[in-house]
Design a protein around this nucleic acid. Structure first.
Length: 268
DNA sequence: TGACAGGTACATG
DNA sequence: CATGTACCTGTC
């Protein structure tokens, strides 16, 4: 257990931000959230700016600090927002505790393939089923079992019919094909982190079931290209508020963070 | 009842 | 290149 004082950080907002689908309240109290990332289980609870992580200092430094992007100063990003832009100001006020996570690439690819034309509760259910069915079982610090996200080989070995029966719908063949492409090395995930945003996006578009929107989500939520700006139905309605056009030039290089604030506001 | 949910693949002009 | 359409499923 370690305790940190953090600003521009609200675990509830992060859990509800729609960038991750396996972060959930541990109990009804909703003050403590659990998640797994890179095979590790974490519980995190927050009261005001005091945040408690259920891990050693070593694990925090090695993994979670980076995962939650705690070395980035989000107040600087907020300060860059046009003071006249009441919409973005409001969005940043409401969702200002969101961090852009550095999620595992493979898991992000699959969860955002599942996310298309889908709602968050069902996305969560689908992801949970995949983990339950094909993910390796482990034990957390309490001795309770949890499951990690299935490895590519596990999903490459599954049939489309199996996934359809599990409620994945028409995304079932996308998942199987994408898993196989990755296992066969058609797209090399090891190399992607060293790519530029444009290169990574182009490479991800080769995957079956990955279009421009999902590719941008993967770039933003796994590869941390915070200039990526995924445009979905909610963001389209948000963009309509800017008849002159959204000022992308002003926010070049970090527009993805603002996209998250706006998404959070629009889905509230 | 039908629209909608963090879209994509595929066919066509 | 741009537009149109089918597609699983649960929820309101």
């Amino acid at each position: 257990m370690i305790k940190k004082q953090l600003k521009d950080f609200e675990i509830r907002q992060i859990a509800d931000s729609g960038q991750c689908f396996r972060m959930r309240p541990v109990s009804e109290k909703e003050q403590t959230y659990s998640l797994t990332a890179a095979g590790n289980y974490l519980e995190i609870s927050q009261k005001d700016s005091e945040v408690i992580f259920s891990c050693t200092d070593q694990e925090f430094e090695r993994l979670w600090k980076h995962y939650f992007d705690l070395e980035t100063d989000y107040s600087r990003i907020k300060q860059a927002i046009d003071p006249e832009d009441t919409y973005l100001q409001e969005a940043a006020r409401i969702g200002g505790g969101i961090r852009i996570l550095r999620q595992e690439l493979w898991e992000t690819i699959i969860t955002f393939i599942i996310s298309q034309q889908n709602n968050i509760p069902r996305i969560r259910k689908c992801v949970d089923r995949l983990c339950e069915e094909f993910g390796e079982e482990r034990q957390n610090f309490r001795g309770e079992t949890y499951r990690v996200f299935p490895v590519p080989e596990a999903l490459a070995a599954v049939t489309e019919e199996t996934l359809r029966k599990m409620g994945l719908g028409y995304r079932a063949p996308y998942i199987v094909k994408t898993a196989r492409m990755i296992c066969e090395g058609e797209v090399d995930l090891e190399r992607l982190p060293s790519f530029s945003y444009e290169e990574a996006r182009e490479e991800l578009l080769k995957l079956n079931g990955v279009g421009v929107k999902v590719a941008d989500c993967i770039c933003l939520f796994a590869l941390h290209h915070i200039g990526a700006f995924p445009v979905d139905t909610h963001i389209k309605t948000m963009l309509k508020r800017y008849p002159e056009g959204f000022p992308f030039e002003r926010y070049a290089g970090f527009a993805g963070v603002l996209q998250q604030y706006a998404f959070y506001k629009e889905t509230r």
